[in-house]
Write a protein that binds this DNA or RNA. Structure first.
Lengths: 192, 192
DNA sequence: CGCTGAACTCATCATGTGGTGAATTTATCT
DNA sequence: AGATAAATTCACCACATGATGAGTTCAGCG
């Protein structure tokens, strides 16, 4: 920080990734508008100007940080494989698993939080839910989209109360118990 | 704005309320951190310093703007009056009605959006859901709190997809159709 | 009338924001 | 070895933010 020599460092460059990691963390915690380039740089122990050098500004950083490590094309089909009588169960499990894994959660959290206050992020998130989730499910299930969206709404709501607002006892209820409680709801929406 | 004379205006003071109205609007649209005192003052066509004069800073403004016109103590009991077989229906209807009315929605929206990125607002919102909604319901219903929270989660999720993210077709689905779709879910949670 | 306090404007501060351009040092390719 | 490109730091810019204090004008009360 303080007495750091100018110019390129010896050895291979790890800085870019350090920035990305810090960015995911801060975007997840404060959303797009709330997180600052300088704050991210500080967290990555890096000069703020490097962020621009690598990502050409805050927006570029966000886009780069959001490049999915959680690919819906891989995850969603898992929900539809297996006995149709257990779709609800599988969907709840999948959702909770994704939101339980720190890396995935950070990215989803960043998207969610950002979508609440930033218009562009709203569009991104809407598109994500619409094409990546709803359309994919609609193609397989042959039921009205509202039903799928009702199911998504239930899961988004759970995520909100559990991970964002951390309302007890929901926040500490074990996964299995939640599956038991919520699965029938999803089942009813998706397999009427 | 420009050539406005200094000093107090003739006639009764309407400025304070103008600020409150603008504040509710902007807090609802951008959340606590996103909305700025200056922006609010601009919207109210008022000098920013007046905000401090009246409310002693941004935080005071927010608190004043959030003073409930929607009193849960009045609304929540409505859900429990009437045939227990229709609790689900009444809850969905009440929720949608509150979020449909522009004044109420602004305040709820402000709370929701703020809670996503501001820690203090998170606490306020959590307390609101916990005491104003869940505890009140738990006192009447004699079922585990998780069940009530699952119901709240379902409604919060709907609100998110419908009013915040505006995902179609959910965003344009008529109230009655939604009631039909969602009510059975709530019913199952609240009357097991 | 005259006084006090409230309503109102203006100039100003310290801080934080995203962003730019030049200078320096190293890696990498020929 | 030499040249080019990339990584890094530093010194800035223009602007927005929340906040404060002083000064002006009016309402309301005696």
């Amino acid at each position: 920080m303080a007495g750091r020599r100018s110019g390129r460092r010896p050895g291979p460059t790890e800085t870019r990734d350090a920035i990305l990691v810090a960015a995911r963390e801060l975007f997840a915690a404060k959303g797009y508008d709330g997180a600052s380039v300088r704050g991210i740089a500080r967290a990555a122990e890096v000069d703020p100007a490097l962020v621009h050098h690598f990502f050409k500004g805050k927006e570029g950083l966000f886009v780069a940080a959001m490049e999915f490590p959680v690919d819906p094309a891989e995850i969603v089909p898992l929900i539809f494989m297996g006995p149709p009588g257990e779709i609800g169960e599988r969907m709840v499990r999948t959702f909770l698993r994704v939101w339980g894994a720190p890396e995935f959660r950070d990215q989803m959290m960043a998207l969610l939080r950002s979508a609440m206050t930033n218009d562009q992020a709203t569009v991104v998130f809407r598109e994500f839910v619409s094409s990546a989730l709803v359309s994919r499910a609609a193609a397989t299930l042959d039921i009205p989209r509202v039903r799928i969206e009702a199911a998504v709404a239930q899961m988004v709501g759970i995520v909100m109360l559990r991970y964002v607002l951390r309302i007890e006892p929901l926040a500490s209820t074990p996964e299995e118990e939640l599956v038991e409680l919520i699965a029938p709801t999803i089942q009813r929406y998706l397999a009427p």
